[in-house]
Design a protein around this nucleic acid. Structure first.
Lengths: 223, 223
DNA sequence: GTCAACAACATTGTCTGACATTCTTTCAAT
DNA sequence: ATTGAAAGAATGTCAGACAATGTTGTTGAC
């Protein structure tokens, strides 16, 4: 028997579907930060039973995508700027490392995929579709992280970025941010394509720092 | 009213207690890696109902402390060496950063606490109490991480170390590992005490690399 | 009118029990 | 020995219930 033929189709359970749906809902910002999630309401809206919902909520709480206070139930975290800063700092640490490794080891094929993702973001950056900007940018990173050679790094980075998804989408709709973001991402891409690890790390660090500055700006401007 | 007086005693729910108990049980290695956890058995052993147990299991799964495969249920992950390596690499990234930051910002008081933790580990290292070695070593890091100034870094580091707790305790009982570990930790402590960030980072990196080598050795030696 | 106590309501935490679906194992037949 | 089918075990999911806790609104006192 071929040893690693992973053909098994994982059945999707209600619990998993629910986690995915809620995660997406949180990303899309339909829940106000700080607002509470009422189990009974969610059950009706999602068409599932309370036990299934509660299991899904525990998963999300462990991912830090929601807070659960005993006897008060789940709510959307209202991140302070200190927390956001802390997340961006760790993100920088991980992302710079990932970009550096990626520059050393990415395949031709994946590099082409990365280029394609960059083009997609370029198109989105010029458009007015806020959602498209965020998702295409996410695709770009996702390819980099998938090629850094360390799945744990990838996993943790994904978790961190998820927690600040709202800030990212907000700051991405800041005047001019999409364009400068594009420039920074192009620099990252060029460095990776050239296999220049040092330059790639530099570009990546610059990009994260600018993203953090933009997030702060969007946060200060009240919105 | 004093604004930030966080006096609220968070009630502990059955679910939380269960998560903690199971986490501890996993750390202590009473479950064989790869072995399955049977809900009905755990319910009886923990004296709780299935819904509560299942919620706890979802939390642990999100922390990657257990695997859950649909229709097969939860099991203890059997980490491959590749995965362990990946975890150690990210741990290095985070821990080196934390140690470096800690060297710059730790208070006198916390420094004394760190020294005390080091002494506790020194005592444990000379003893034959395997559990004490692991816990005192964990205390030492925990103080460092708590003083790195970034709670996210701390949180993620804790999660990562949890996932390789078994390897850590195994390698710590390797002949001579505790003593060399002590020397490395003392070097870290000295650098932090001297406020020498560069040296602290160097010492930390060396320590993690040696720990990883020890883990590999203990893994290869079958056990 | 403002504030505090209290009652009514809403929500969560937890359990029991049930059933369909999906593994897993056993055992018989080829 | 391999295959196949049937029995058994375990999980996924739901419905309903009730106590404990939080929240809200009302009443009454000052």
């Amino acid at each position: 028997m071929p040893p690693d033929l992973n053909l098994r189709v994982l059945p999707r359970t209600v619990q998993q579907e629910t986690v995915d749906k809620l995660r997406l809902a949180i990303f899309s910002g339909i829940f106000e930060p700080g607002s509470r999630l009422i189990e009974s309401q969610l059950c009706v809206q999602l068409g599932i039973s309370r036990p299934s919902l509660r299991e899904a909520l525990r998963s999300l709480a462990a991912e830090r995508l929601i807070d659960i206070v005993p006897n008060r139930g789940p709510s959307i975290p209202a991140l302070s700027w200190e927390e956001v800063t802390a997340i961006y700092e760790v993100r920088e640490l991980l992302e710079v490392e990932a970009v550096g490794r990626c520059a050393q080891r990415i395949s031709e094929e994946q590099l082409r995929a990365l280029e394609k993702a960059l083009c997609a973001f370029e198109a989105a950056a010029s458009s007015n579709d806020g959602l498209a900007r965020v998702t295409t940018a996410a695709d770009f990173y996702s390819i980099i992280l998938a090629n850094c050679g360390n799945p744990i790094l990838e996993e943790i980075h994904r978790g961190l970025v998820a927690r600040i998804s709202l800030f990212r989408s907000r700051s991405m709709s800041l005047e001019g941010r999409a364009q400068s973001s594009l420039a920074e991402m192009r620099e990252i891409y060029e460095s990776i394509a050239a296999g220049d690890e040092k330059a790639a790390r530099r570009a990546s660090r610059k990009h994260v720092l600018k993203a953090m500055a933009a997030a702060k700006k969007s946060m200060d401007s009240g919105n």
